[in-house]
């Protein structure tokens, strides 16, 4: 006998993500899911973003790693609340992990939560966490061919940060081809060249993010 189910496979994750999204909207908090490979500069980009926006917004960070708490400690050293999630081997964050982490934060006191996803260009792209926007970082040393190899993450991202831009002269990175492939995957997505550790290009990226945060606050307030 055939039994119809007609249900999303990740229904359990999606339901918690929807509830997270409602919770964030109720408290007027904008949530960014930042995805990249290991070593692309997620933590340094977060620190540069904090430096650019901390006078304007109250910020907290959720750090996702398979193990260790080094990233959360780096962020806390800058006086920013940080929660470390250790996935214990899992290659991506899921909405229930975010919910448990968020429960330890004072949402009323926050404007922006930056989630640093597990370093991986594949799995995080399929999981809704309840975020307002997914954004990815590609670093120049990884090569301009990455959008061919990991297309999905470029398709679900609302902005692409091209980090370590200052190393462009050292690596054989074809920026024009990179931008062409990214456009073929995700026509409207902005690409921000950034050198996070030097602070270069951060203003344009932070300006885009601030625009999204302010627009979401207006929507939430309605």
């Amino acid at each position: 006998m055939k039994v119809d189910i007609e249900k999303r496979i990740l229904a359990a994750n999606d339901e918690i993500a929807a509830s997270n999204r409602a919770l964030f909207a109720a408290h007027g908090v904008f949530v960014l899911d930042l995805m990249a490979s290991p070593g692309a500069g997620k933590t340094s980009t977060i620190l540069a973003t904090i430096a650019a926006l901390r006078n304007r917004y109250a910020i907290a960070v959720i750090e996702g790693d398979i193990a260790s708490k080094v990233d959360a400690e780096k962020v806390r050293a800058h006086g920013i609340p940080a929660v470390q999630i250790n996935t214990g081997g899992a290659c991506h964050l899921e909405s229930a992990m975010i919910r448990r982490a968020v429960d330890t934060l004072d949402l009323d006191a926050l404007d922006l939560i930056i989630i640093e996803n597990v370093g991986n260009l594949v799995c995080p792209s399929d999981f809704d966490l309840g975020e307002n926007a997914k954004v990815m970082i590609l670093s120049v040393p990884e090569g301009h061919d990455k959008p061919y190899k990991y297309p999905n993450i470029f398709q679900v991202s609302e902005a692409v940060i091209l980090n370590k831009y200052d190393t462009m002269g050292v690596f054989d990175f074809d920026e024009e081809e990179f931008r062409d492939v990214v456009r073929s995957l995700n026509g409207q997505v902005p690409v921000f060249p950034v050198s996070a550790t030097k602070g270069e290009g951060v203003d344009a990226w932070a300006g885009w993010l601030a625009g999204r945060i302010d627009a979401a606050k207006e929507t939430d307030a309605r």
């Binding site: 039994v3 189910i5 007609e6 249900k7 999303r8």
Partner: peptide, 9 residues
């Protein structure tokens, strides 16, 4: 899509 459609039991 990531959908479960039906099962045969």
């Amino acid at each position: 899509e990531l959908k479960i459609d039906s099962i045969d039991i």
